[in-house]
Simulated assay, not measured.
Amino acid sequence: MDDPDHEQLVKSLRSAAEQLTENRSIRDLEATVGKLVHAAVATIPGADGGGISRTEQGTVRSSHATDNAILGLDQLQSELGQGPCITAADDPPPAGIVVAQDLAGPDGERWPAYAPRCVHAGFRAMMSVQLSLHGRRRSALNLYARAPGVFDASAELTAGLFGVQAATLLHGADHAADLGHALASRDVIGQAKGILMERFTVDDDEAFQMLVESSQETNVKLVDVATWLTSEARTRRADAGPRRHRG
């Protein structure tokens, strides 16, 4: 099999790196991951489609698929709990790449429930690259080929390079999401403290301690206590109607 277009490969990877530094939102990062998957499919000879699978607490989510057929096959692996992407995400070999040269042959015996259905859908070969190993989220870049035996050592290396970029982008998206959640939590806790300070004439530290004690006594997360309090305050204001301004 011919080597991939190395000039196109370098161009694709450089473009992904540039977009990574320019991204300012989770939506930008997610869009860049999608472009990277399409670039991998276009660059690696024999690849006809691709997508990303992510596992978290036993649940597998498929995303960034190049078409609906690939999305369906990624989701099928999730439903069956087996397939190259599950193996790559949860139990990868040392190199982190799982290759099935022919799912209609001996390779398919590793995933007896999945392989026949993938072949029936028109795909004989798969390559899945493990993207993350640590933390609560695990993921894999999945590449599908209609012809068997197309993923050689050069294809594995190229897929691994794309995998490094995809892993970095996904880490950035996760970090941005976690940061956004933390900022939102901080805001609602701040609002709850303000409500308690006004309602009970306490200072900032005392209001926060009230929230902590309520959380401990009710076995409810601090941010959930704060969310309930702010919601309750909005309901009170709505029931009281508009305030009259003195002339």
Rank of each mutant, 00 (worst) to 15 (best):
A89K: 05
T201I: 09
A207S: 10
D67R: 00
T59S: 09
D48Y: 00
D91K: 11
L20T: 07
A42K: 12
L133A: 14
A16K: 01
P84L: 02
V225K: 06
R24K: 14
V220P: 02
N68R: 05
K221R: 15
L13Y: 02
S185H: 13
R137V: 15
D178K: 09
D204S: 10
G105V: 00
I97E: 03
S154Q: 12
I44H: 02
L222H: 12
A47M: 07
D174R: 08
L73S: 06
G96D: 07
D2V: 02
P242I: 14
E30Y: 02
L161M: 13
A125P: 03
G96F: 03
P106E: 14
D48V: 00
E7V: 15
I195G: 03
A192W: 05
I97T: 10
V60I: 11
E213W: 02
P45N: 01
T59Q: 09
P116M: 03
T21A: 06
T87A: 15
V225W: 07
T230S: 11
N68M: 02
G108P: 04
G160W: 01
T201K: 08
E79L: 11
R138N: 09
E56A: 14
Q216C: 04
T227I: 05
F208M: 12
D5P: 03
Q77H: 06
S128E: 01
V223C: 06
E30R: 11
T21M: 05
D204T: 10
A173T: 10
V225Y: 10
P112L: 07
D187T: 14
P148L: 02
A47C: 09
K35N: 14
Q130S: 12
A65Y: 07
Q75F: 00
G247K: 09
E18Q: 11
H6S: 14
T32F: 00
A140D: 11
G172V: 06
G247T: 13
D2A: 08
A125M: 03
M197G: 03
V164Y: 02
R136V: 08
E22N: 07
L71D: 13
Q216N: 06
P116E: 07
V212P: 08
D203H: 03
T55E: 15
A153G: 05
L157M: 07
W228N: 11
M197W: 06
S185Q: 14
A42Y: 05
G105F: 01
A95T: 15
S231V: 07
E217T: 13
E232Q: 12
H38S: 15
S231H: 10
I70P: 01
G46K: 03
R186E: 13
H181W: 01
D90N: 14
R137M: 07
C85S: 12
I26E: 12
P92V: 10
D74P: 04
T32Q: 04
V164K: 08
P93A: 01
E30N: 09
A238R: 11
G58L: 04
R24E: 15
V37Y: 05
A153Q: 13
P94R: 01
P45W: 01
Q57M: 08
T235W: 06
